[in-house]
Write a protein that binds this DNA or RNA. Structure first.
Length: 112
DNA sequence: GTGCTGACTGCAG
DNA sequence: ACTGCAGCCAGCA
Protein backbone atom coordinates (compact mmCIF):
# COMPACT_ATOMS: atom_id res chain seq x y z
CA UNK A 1 0.00 0.00 0.00
CA UNK A 2 1.13 3.44 -0.75
CA UNK A 3 1.45 5.99 1.92
CA UNK A 4 -1.51 8.25 2.15
CA UNK A 5 -0.81 11.34 0.19
CA UNK A 6 -3.52 12.96 2.20
CA UNK A 7 -2.73 15.08 5.13
CA UNK A 8 -4.06 14.68 8.59
CA UNK A 9 -6.27 17.63 7.79
CA UNK A 10 -8.14 15.79 5.08
CA UNK A 11 -9.16 13.11 7.55
CA UNK A 12 -10.46 15.70 9.96
CA UNK A 13 -12.38 17.48 7.22
CA UNK A 14 -13.88 14.21 6.09
CA UNK A 15 -15.30 13.46 9.53
CA UNK A 16 -16.44 17.03 10.15
CA UNK A 17 -18.24 16.99 6.82
CA UNK A 18 -20.18 13.93 7.96
CA UNK A 19 -21.59 15.67 11.00
CA UNK A 20 -25.37 15.68 10.54
CA UNK A 21 -27.29 18.91 10.72
CA UNK A 22 -28.49 19.90 14.15
CA UNK A 23 -25.75 17.90 15.81
CA UNK A 24 -22.38 18.73 17.32
CA UNK A 25 -19.23 16.86 18.23
CA UNK A 26 -15.98 17.44 20.05
CA UNK A 27 -12.41 17.62 18.84
CA UNK A 28 -11.51 14.67 21.01
CA UNK A 29 -14.22 12.53 19.41
CA UNK A 30 -12.87 13.24 15.94
CA UNK A 31 -9.31 12.76 17.11
CA UNK A 32 -10.16 9.44 18.68
CA UNK A 33 -12.01 8.39 15.58
CA UNK A 34 -8.82 9.05 13.65
CA UNK A 35 -6.86 7.14 16.28
CA UNK A 36 -5.28 10.26 17.73
CA UNK A 37 -7.30 10.86 20.87
CA UNK A 38 -4.26 12.36 22.51
CA UNK A 39 -3.81 14.74 19.63
CA UNK A 40 -7.16 16.43 19.95
CA UNK A 41 -5.39 19.75 19.63
CA UNK A 42 -4.34 18.82 16.16
CA UNK A 43 -7.97 18.44 15.20
CA UNK A 44 -8.73 21.98 16.20
CA UNK A 45 -5.57 23.14 14.54
CA UNK A 46 -6.56 21.31 11.40
CA UNK A 47 -9.93 23.01 11.46
CA UNK A 48 -8.05 26.22 11.15
CA UNK A 49 -7.56 25.35 7.52
CA UNK A 50 -11.19 24.32 7.29
CA UNK A 51 -12.00 27.97 7.55
CA UNK A 52 -11.26 28.13 3.84
CA UNK A 53 -13.51 25.16 3.20
CA UNK A 54 -17.17 26.12 3.11
CA UNK A 55 -18.01 22.42 3.09
CA UNK A 56 -16.70 22.06 6.60
CA UNK A 57 -19.27 22.95 9.27
CA UNK A 58 -16.65 23.93 11.82
CA UNK A 59 -19.34 25.57 13.88
CA UNK A 60 -20.62 22.07 14.70
CA UNK A 61 -17.33 21.21 16.31
CA UNK A 62 -16.77 22.35 19.86
CA UNK A 63 -14.64 21.32 22.78
CA UNK A 64 -15.55 18.62 25.28
CA UNK A 65 -17.36 21.13 27.48
CA UNK A 66 -19.67 22.10 24.63
CA UNK A 67 -18.04 25.50 24.69
CA UNK A 68 -17.53 27.45 21.47
CA UNK A 69 -13.82 27.77 21.92
CA UNK A 70 -13.19 28.25 18.23
CA UNK A 71 -15.74 30.98 17.68
CA UNK A 72 -12.98 33.50 17.69
CA UNK A 73 -11.58 31.98 14.54
CA UNK A 74 -14.70 32.61 12.53
CA UNK A 75 -15.31 35.67 10.48
CA UNK A 76 -16.96 37.05 13.56
CA UNK A 77 -17.27 35.51 17.05
CA UNK A 78 -21.03 35.86 16.73
CA UNK A 79 -21.09 33.92 13.46
CA UNK A 80 -20.55 30.56 15.12
CA UNK A 81 -23.40 31.00 17.58
CA UNK A 82 -25.74 32.18 14.85
CA UNK A 83 -24.83 29.23 12.68
CA UNK A 84 -25.60 26.89 15.56
CA UNK A 85 -28.93 28.60 16.13
CA UNK A 86 -29.73 28.05 12.48
CA UNK A 87 -29.20 24.36 13.18
CA UNK A 88 -31.85 24.65 15.88
CA UNK A 89 -29.11 24.38 18.50
CA UNK A 90 -29.46 26.55 21.57
CA UNK A 91 -26.40 28.44 22.66
CA UNK A 92 -25.92 30.58 25.72
CA UNK A 93 -22.80 32.18 27.12
CA UNK A 94 -20.89 30.55 24.24
CA UNK A 95 -21.98 27.20 25.58
CA UNK A 96 -24.27 24.73 23.85
CA UNK A 97 -27.47 23.89 25.71
CA UNK A 98 -28.28 20.19 25.97
CA UNK A 99 -24.87 19.52 24.52
CA UNK A 100 -24.97 15.90 25.64
CA UNK A 101 -28.22 15.43 23.72
CA UNK A 102 -26.90 17.10 20.59
CA UNK A 103 -23.58 15.36 20.90
CA UNK A 104 -22.75 13.30 17.82
CA UNK A 105 -19.98 10.79 18.25
CA UNK A 106 -18.39 9.48 15.01
CA UNK A 107 -17.19 6.46 16.97
CA UNK A 108 -20.80 5.55 17.66
CA UNK A 109 -22.50 6.82 14.51
CA UNK A 110 -19.86 5.88 11.97
CA UNK A 111 -18.31 3.11 14.02
CA UNK A 112 -15.64 1.51 11.88
C1' DG B 1 17.33 20.09 11.59
C1' DT B 2 15.51 22.65 15.80
C1' DG B 3 11.99 25.09 18.23
C1' DC B 4 7.39 27.25 19.06
C1' DT B 5 2.54 27.35 18.49
C1' DG B 6 -2.04 25.73 19.07
C1' DA B 7 -10.17 25.87 17.71
C1' DC B 8 -7.87 20.18 23.51
C1' DT B 9 -8.03 16.66 27.09
C1' DG B 10 -7.18 14.41 31.41
C1' DC B 11 -5.47 14.25 35.95
C1' DA B 12 -4.06 16.37 40.33
C1' DG B 13 -4.81 19.78 44.14
C1' DA C 1 -17.69 21.78 42.73
C1' DC C 2 -13.60 24.62 40.13
C1' DT C 3 -8.65 25.80 38.84
C1' DG C 4 -4.14 24.85 37.23
C1' DC C 5 -0.55 22.22 34.87
C1' DA C 6 1.44 18.91 31.78
C1' DG C 7 1.19 15.93 27.56
C1' DC C 8 0.39 15.32 22.99
C1' DC C 9 1.62 15.70 17.68
C1' DA C 10 1.36 18.06 13.00
C1' DG C 11 2.55 22.25 10.68
C1' DC C 12 5.27 26.37 9.96
C1' DA C 13 9.44 29.87 10.60
Amino acid sequence: MQEKTYTFYQDVYDVARQIPKGRVTSYGAIAKYLGMARSSRMVGYAMNGAHSMVDIPAHRVVNRNGLLTGKHHFETPFRMQELLEQENIKVEEDQIIDFKELYWDPLVELKL
